[in-house]
Simulated scan of single mutants.
Amino acid sequence: MEKKKVLNEGIWMLALFVVLLLVAIYVPGVSVLSSLFLVLPFLVFSAKYSLKSSVMFGLISLLVASVAGGLGAVPLAFVFCSTGIVMGSMVYKKLDKLSIFIAGSLTFLLNIVLLYVSTILLTGVNVATEMNEAFKRSFQESMDLMEELGQPLPEEAVKQFQEGFSFFYALTPSLFVLFALTAVFLFMLVNFPILKKLKINVPHFQPFRMWRMPKSILWYYLILLLLSFVAIPEVGSSWYSTYVNLMFMLQFCLIIQGLSFFYFFADIKKWPKIVPIILTVLSIVFLPLLYLVRLLGIIDLGFDLRQRLQQKP
């Protein structure tokens, strides 16, 4: 009876996966939305059954994906299949939501890095390099046009644009990490409520106001900042790429700390919930405000503002 139940549910989840995969591949208008649910069949199945059954289900899904969407659909299917199985298996083991998020993000990140490297090896095309060169060519054409119109850009502005291109190109590894974190967060946001509807026990995150980064983040940030004065990161060097990526991720952690503190402060003051949400949106839209949020995160980590506020009568 148990095997029949597993088989029946596997067939239904397989059918759902094929429909979602075909929509993601062949219907451009809703492909992104469909992609958010591609992990759902694997989440549901692996949250209810053993890892052995889940892996078998995943292998069959890849085989069906190759038939339904061609060989080109297999890498896409594998990304969502493996991520969903890892996350669902952790739900099956009743692990906490943060562990599921981290494991899912690492799995998704590994997959997109493998896809990126495989694309370079098979086609000889580095997407990041090609995009960087395309932006540079477009910028150069715009400069040439402005010179023809008698309104050339100042040399300082040209230099800043060129440094910006180099910065974003060097930032490629961190952008991969950020993309993986965002993708898995969205997977959990849209799919976990469905798991609850299906009577699957899903763990909860701590409220955002309770999130706290390790204090070591602040020390890493300060050490890296001091190192940048001792050994100045020169554009194009390995140290520059390392510095840019480490600093970006550390600053991202400090921004999360700053926003979390603001939600904590708003909760203590009994402000309407919309107030910290508006600040979060404004911080993303207006970069100078984001710097202030990062500074708030540094102060909170360094001086433990939350504990001080809680100790006040």
Rank of each mutant, 00 (worst) to 15 (best):
S237D: 05
M87H: 09
L22N: 07
F252S: 00
L40Y: 07
L290D: 06
M131A: 12
L289G: 13
V55Q: 12
T172E: 01
S238A: 14
N8V: 14
S82F: 08
I255S: 05
M56Q: 06
M213W: 00
M1H: 11
P288D: 14
L43K: 13
G10A: 15
V158D: 05
F78S: 14
L225G: 11
K3H: 09
I120V: 15
M247A: 02
S66N: 04
N132G: 14
L98G: 06
F252D: 01
V6A: 07
L153C: 09
N8I: 13
S61A: 15
V177F: 00
S118E: 09
N8Y: 07
I277H: 14
V18W: 11
L63A: 14
P272M: 10
I217K: 01
A77G: 13
S138A: 15
A128N: 01
L36T: 07
R212G: 05
Y169S: 06
Q251D: 02
L222Q: 01
I277K: 09
I299Q: 04
I268Q: 12
F248S: 00
E234M: 10
D304N: 15
G164Y: 06
F42I: 07
K52F: 10
Q310M: 15
P288K: 08
Q140R: 14
W211F: 12
Q310V: 13
K269N: 06
K93D: 12
V244E: 01
F176I: 00
A24W: 04
Q310R: 06
S53A: 07
P233H: 11
A170H: 01
L153A: 14
K199H: 10
L63E: 01
Y291N: 05
L295H: 01
V74G: 08
V79R: 13
S118V: 04
S82C: 05
L59V: 15
G29R: 07
L222I: 15
L296Y: 12
F135D: 04
I200R: 04
Y116W: 10
Y263Q: 05
A68M: 08
S46N: 09
R306V: 12
S174W: 00
T182G: 03
Y291S: 10
K270V: 05
F17H: 13
G104W: 07
L115T: 10
M188L: 09
L296N: 03
K270D: 13
W12I: 13
F45K: 04
V55W: 03
Y220N: 04
I255R: 11
V230P: 02
L109I: 00
L71W: 12
L178E: 00
L292D: 02
L14D: 04
V184N: 01
Y169V: 02
E148V: 02
R209A: 12
A183K: 06
K97D: 08
K197R: 15
T119V: 08
K199N: 15
S118Y: 09
V125L: 11
G29D: 13
L296Q: 15
L279H: 11
L259C: 08
S216N: 05
V158M: 11
D144S: 09
S228T: 08
F161Q: 08
L171C: 01
L71A: 13
F179H: 00
G104I: 11
A231K: 12
P75Y: 00
V117W: 01
Q206P: 09
P28H: 11
L218P: 07
S46I: 13
S54K: 10
F139N: 06
I284K: 03
L175R: 00
L186M: 10
P173L: 00
V244F: 02
S241G: 03
K269Q: 14
